[in-house]
Design a protein around this nucleic acid. Structure first.
Lengths: 352, 352
DNA sequence: ATCCCATCTTTGAACGATCAAACGCACGCT
DNA sequence: AGCGTGCGTTTGATCGTTCAAAGATGGGAT
């Protein structure tokens, strides 16, 4: 008996336990209001009937969907993917600990995409948003703030005043650490392979490089171009073939760094031995044998947790100490063969 | 006037248009029942008030959440990520065209994870599931079928009888094409770098290799080991250093292939010139300059569309011709430098 | 003995949509 | 004139939950 039908409701649990709807509801939402023995009887009935509150009904009444909207970035942006993948995972996991789930949707970039956000809000399909892939002049933070919609971004609002709450990686600090690392290894001619000015993320990273050079008394040397590995290769080639070729290359991204590694291979130079290379993002390919790229790893899981924490704070789901509106987390330098002479140290078994 | 308050309801639209609730509802769900002039009046009111039906209320009444559950695979499975990333995007986009969204959740692998699925069902939080990352002895297809829960898998149910609906990539056909491609280039000693037996996906792929060898009168030569690039490198090394070294390597995955490429580089061999290498998955790194790996590309976007189509068919949302329960799609071979002599042909500009 | 109060529990009314059935009305047929 | 028919519209009930307020119960304090 007590078939665990899928159709258990508050009412059916109530009659099974010999109490009223509201008492069952209280057992779930405010247990302290219910007498201990009643509570136990109700809990047993809940178990027996495998009761779970219907989410739609609850949402309708409470005006909370317990869903967080996340826009999956336009297909095949290419380079950022592995990072965002981990981010989504982290957000999903953190959200689950508070009974929240992530609702995915797609939207075109720029103003055209705002409609999708508006639609979800009007339908009360989500309680708030997690933003990723924020770019310069991204319309979303301002718009969401104007509509007083709860949201937290992974990535600063790069243009204009700092809008809304965000968590981000301190790219500048990371690059500074990279330069210091290379300097400690004895490198004195350290060049930077970057993106064109105006990209936010790229400017942040190059700033850290420049600052470190200043502090260490090195001459900053920066080359820039749009793109990934292809252009990284071209830029590195120019540097290596020019006068006063650098002994170390700091790259704005792993993708550029892969290009740089290729440029080294083109001319028979050994990464880490002849020229050191450092990337940014610690993408999966960086640890491939034969690549072994030193790179700055972003604390993605922590970022996901903090983003969710902030958002649930805005939603009043968790009580957070009135912390700062922003969090800037340091990436950590993962040193691999591309910036380490092969000679000293044990032959580290490269991980698959 | 007519402030576009966020609180527009069916009732408020109705009174604005001078009709009843139900008529407004009909305009949205069954326009043909409403007289044209009435319809227009109602549509104007909807526009003016920016009305969108409340999803919770609708779900409560219709017992459909219009959400599709998708379990984000346990963190950092590593190799499959870029593929699944595209898959999620495709599913999200296809679902959106029918008013559906994707709900993300996490679950431990194996039986332990089934609770999470059960929970979502009991809450009526989702209407069905999209499965990915199905493995041998995956408990989910059977369990979901027993509960008569609508679901479609990306990936066959590898063990036992074929359970439920799925869409998958014909790995065997892909590998056959790879072998034929190499054969056409003149290769006669083609070896296969694979995974240990029993992995489903791996067995499928090696079967295609073996079949092609038979048909072409070649001696199949198969080496196997668990893992990715690291083991790929080791296996390739053994092959290249042994007697009767192969002139071409077909690898069960891009990751293995990266290891094989490394093994070539270790001994100064030129991919495509001295030894050809083919991978599987067409991961982003395959097109990096300096990698340029020939690989089998899965039609992920199409798979996503078909999965959604099937699932919405099961849910009765779209009427599908009573098609087959399974779809097997062919991957396409993307030929790059690793299986093509550099000599002939224009110097293809490698894409960033 | 009376009253008040705290504790625990129940009752009615929402939340915003859809389903099912009833209603009004003009039309054509007998 | 009377009647069935079909179309367009409205009405009441319902989905399952939580909110707000009211009811029961027992135990001190006066």
């Amino acid at each position: 008996m007590a078939t665990p039908e899928s159709g258990a409701t508050l009412e059916s649990v109530a009659s099974a336990a010999g109490v009223s709807r509201q008492t069952v509801s209280n057992v779930l939402n405010a247990p302290e209001r219910v007498a201990p023995e009643t509570r136990q009887r109700v809990e047993e009935a809940i178990q027996a009937l495998r009761y779970r509150p219907n989410r739609s009904a609850r949402s309708l009444r409470t005006r909370m969907s317990n869903l967080i909207g996340y826009c999956v970035p336009p297909a095949a942006a290419g380079n950022l993917n592995p990072v965002l993948d981990r981010f989504v995972h982290a957000v999903t996991e953190s959200a689950a600990q508070h009974g929240f789930h992530v609702l995915l949707f797609t939207a075109p970039a720029g103003d055209a995409g705002l409609d999708r956000y508006a639609e979800l809000l009007a339908q009360r399909a989500v309680d708030g948003f997690v933003l990723a892939d924020t770019v310069v002049a991204d319309p979303r933070p301002r718009w969401l703030t104007e509509q007083s919609v709860p949201f937290v971004a992974f990535g600063r609002s790069w243009s204009g005043p700092d809008i809304g709450r965000w968590v981000d990686v301190d790219g500048a600090a990371g690059m500074t650490e990279a330069v210091e690392h290379l300097h400690a290894l004895g490198h004195r001619r350290i060049a930077f392979i970057g993106w064109p000015e105006g990209s936010g993320v790229g400017d942040d990273r190059v700033a850290g490089y420049t600052a470190a050079c200043r502090r260490l008394g090195l001459d900053p040397r920066i080359v820039r171009a749009e793109g990934g590995a292809g252009t990284g290769r071209a830029l590195a080639t120019t540097l290596l073939d020019g006068d006063d070729a650098p002994s170390a290359l700091v790259c704005v991204s792993d993708d550029s760094a892969y290009g740089a590694l290729r440029a080294l291979a083109d001319r028979g130079l050994q990464p880490g031995e002849d020229v050191a290379v450092v990337g940014f993002d610690d993408t999966p390919a960086a640890r491939l044998p034969g690549v072994d790229l030193t790179s700055l790893s972003q604390p993605i899981e922590q970022i996901g947790r903090e983003v969710v924490q902030m958002l649930l704070g805005l939603l009043g789901v968790v009580v957070t100490p009135p912390g700062p509106e922003h969090r800037l987390l340091r990436p950590s330098l993962v040193v691999r063969a591309s910036s380490r002479p092969a000679g000293p140290g044990p032959a580290a078994p490269t991980e698959a």
